[in-house]
C-alpha cells in the first residue's frame, strides 16, 4: 500500500500529459494517409496507452503478480477464441454454404473503388446518406 505514496500528484499529471500527447498522435496518424503507419499510430499507441494506465493509474505492478497473470490469461483466451472462430467467420463461403449478402456488398464496393467513388456511402445501402461529420479525413 505504502508503495503508492512514493509518487506525488505531479507524477500522475505528467502521466496524463503523456497520454494526451499519445492521443494526439493517434488522431493525427491517419491524416498521413499511410495504412501501415495508421495501424501503428492507432493500435500500437493504444497498447502503450493501456499499459500506462494499467501501470501508473491502476498500479497493476504493485499488486501481487498473479493479478497480472490472470489478466494476461483472459487476453490469451480471447486470442484463442479469435483463432478458433476467425477461420469460419472470415470466409464468405465454405462447405455447403455461402454468404450472398457479403459477396454482393464486396462486389459493389470493388466496383465503387474502381470508379473512385468510395467513401461516400457511410450508411451503406441507405441511399445518399452524407458523412457523420465534415472533419472526417478522407481515407485514401
Amino acid at each position: 500500500m505504502s508503495a503508492h505514496e512514493a509518487h506525488g500528484d505531479e507524477f500522475y499529471v505528467k502521466t496524463w500529459a503523456i497520454l494526451l500527447v499519445l492521443l494526439l498522435i493517434s488522431v493525427l496518424g491517419p491524416l498521413l494517409g499511410h495504412p501501415v503507419l495508421t495501424l501503428i499510430t492507432a493500435f500500437g499507441i493504444a497498447v502503450v496507452k493501456a499499459y500506462l494506465v494499467a501501470v501508473r493509474f491502476m498500479h497493476i505492478n504493485l499488486t501481487p503478480r498473479f493479478v497480472t497473470y490472470a489478466v494476461a490469461t483472459t487476453l490469451v483466451f480471447m486470442l484463442l477464441f479469435f483463432a478458433g472462430t476467425a477461420p469460419d467467420v472470415m470466409k464468405n463461403h465454405g462447405t455447403n454454404w455461402v454468404k450472398p449478402a457479403w459477396i454482393q456488398a464486396e462486389a459493389a464496393y470493388a466496383a465503387e473503388v474502381a470508379s473512385g467513388a468510395a467513401g461516400h456511402h457511410g450508411a451503406g445501402g441507405h441511399g445518399e446518406a452524407p458523412h457523420g461529420g465534415e472533419a472526417a479525413p478522407a481515407h485514401h
Binding site: 487476453l75 483466451f77 467467420v89 464496393y109 458523412h131 457523420g132 478522407a138
Partner: peptide
C-alpha cells in the same frame, strides 16, 4: 475483459474480412 473481448474479437474478424467496412467506418467522426 472477456465480455468486451468476445464482442470486439467478433468485430475485428468481420472488419478484417470486409473491405467495405472501411467505407462505413469513414463516416465516424474521429
Amino acid at each position: 475483459i472477456v465480455i468486451f473481448g468476445g464482442l470486439l474479437g467478433s468485430y475485428i474478424m468481420h472488419r478484417l474480412a470486409h473491405g467495405v467496412w472501411a467505407d462505413y467506418a469513414a463516416a465516424t467522426n474521429p
